[in-house]
């Protein structure tokens, strides 16, 4: 169990117009699973390559278990990478693949055999030792790759979008498996994904990375509910961003004046609210705090819920309503929306 600290990491690839990673700080407490989420091309994979030692940072430090990693080759870092492509060695059997890292370390073959068997049990593929990678399904191959990474008991496990090539139902299984295996082994894990739900579902901590920089880092619920910046809020799906003038606990926006649950920080420039936190009611009654009359512009059926776009004053709001609650509404109907004060999050930027 090692703590991983990244300090002010910067990396610019030769010929690239701007840094892939810029001034990146991150602290992974020992034994935790942290997700690193961000849109494609934001530099997530570069962070993993820097930790793994497959690329050298231009500036900044990486500490694994307190040891600075500058000049330490990948094979001596104890940082094992597992990508979205399983990258099993095609010329080796499953057992040889899983045992690869131990073999390279000169571990006794009998010990390797038993550890490989244990690991295949852990990933729920017992007895597949003699299979070739070409004889495995995509999900099986990914599990073998996980076993291969875990068996060397690395200081840090680096997962780069490990689920993105899998079918939806396999994805959930694999996600649970990763979570369970991480709990059992206690290996400090950094899990890179571009899927925000995946990011908050499995993690002890979640870090949001935008354009090469760390944008938010904290407990998943915090990151989800309190994005703090406009960019993180948008990335995390808080679709409704209302610019406003703050005055104490109230803020004047394009749909009217809103009351907040707590005083906003001085740098706040807007409030955000997630679509599912807005309440919709029939009729035009506007009594109560943060309640406004508006009309339905469009309805979009999404199975478990309905996404309604409503016009309020000079702006639009996106509202997610449980399917049964939306049954009575039609386009053009006058409705009232209620924005609970505790669901309004002030953001900066």
């Amino acid at each position: 169990m090692s703590r991983i600290v990244l300090e002010s990491l910067t990396k610019t690839y030769p010929g690239a117009p701007r840094p892939a990673v810029r001034g990146f700080d991150l602290d992974l407490p020992a034994g935790t699973l942290t997700t690193l989420v961000g849109p494609s091309g934001c530099g997530k994979s570069t962070v993993l390559r820097l930790i793994a030692g497959l690329a050298e940072p231009d500036a900044g430090r990486i500490l694994i278990g307190g040891q600075p990693m500058a000049g330490i080759p990948p094979e001596r870092r104890g940082a094992v990478l597992m990508g979205q492509d399983h990258r099993l060695f095609p010329h080796m059997s499953v057992a040889e693949n899983v045992g690869f890292g131990l073999r390279m370390r000169g571990v006794d073959p009998a010990v390797i055999r038993s550890k490989v068997a244990d690991m295949l049990d852990l990933v729920q593929l017992p007895g597949l030792e003699s299979r070739r990678p070409s004889e495995l399904s995509g999900g099986q191959a990914q599990r073998v790759a996980l076993a291969r990474a875990l068996v060397v008991e690395p200081a840090v496990l680096l997962l780069d979008e490990p689920l993105s090539d899998l079918d939806p139902e396999l994805r959930l299984d694999m996600r649970d498996l990763i979570r369970r295996a991480q709990h059992q082994t206690g290996i400090t894990t950094l899990f890179v994904t571009h899927d925000r739900e995946e990011a908050v579902a499995v993690a002890d901590r979640t870090a949001v990375m935008l354009a090469g920089e760390l944008a938010r880092h904290g407990r998943p619920a915090d990151v989800f509910e309190r994005p703090l910046t406009r960019a993180v809020a948008l990335f995390m799906g808080a679709t409704n961003v209302l610019d406003g003038r703050f005055d104490g606990r109230s803020v004047t926006t394009s749909i009217g004046t809103l009351t907040l649950a707590a005083p906003p920080p001085p740098e706040a420039t807007a409030v955000v609210i997630r679509p599912e936190r807005i309440r919709l009611s029939a009729g035009s009654g506007t009594s109560g705090v943060n309640t406004f009359a508006c009309s339905i512009k469009s309805l979009e059926y999404r199975g478990t819920h309905v996404v309604a776009t409503v016009a309020a004053a000079t702006d639009m709001l996106v509202v997610a309503v449980p399917a049964e609650a939306a049954a009575g509404h039609g386009v053009g109907d006058p409705v009232a929306v209620h924005l609970p004060p505790e669901a309004l999050q002030p953001v900066s930027g």
Binding site: A52, E75, L81, R87, F100, G101
Partner: peptide
């Protein structure tokens, strides 16, 4: 990427070449 994978699993450059 297979070479990177092997390095990260603990193989030295000469082991990567050989294995």
């Amino acid at each position: 990427g297979l070479e990177d994978q092997a390095r990260s699993l603990g193989a030295t450059p000469s082991q990567v070449l050989r294995h």
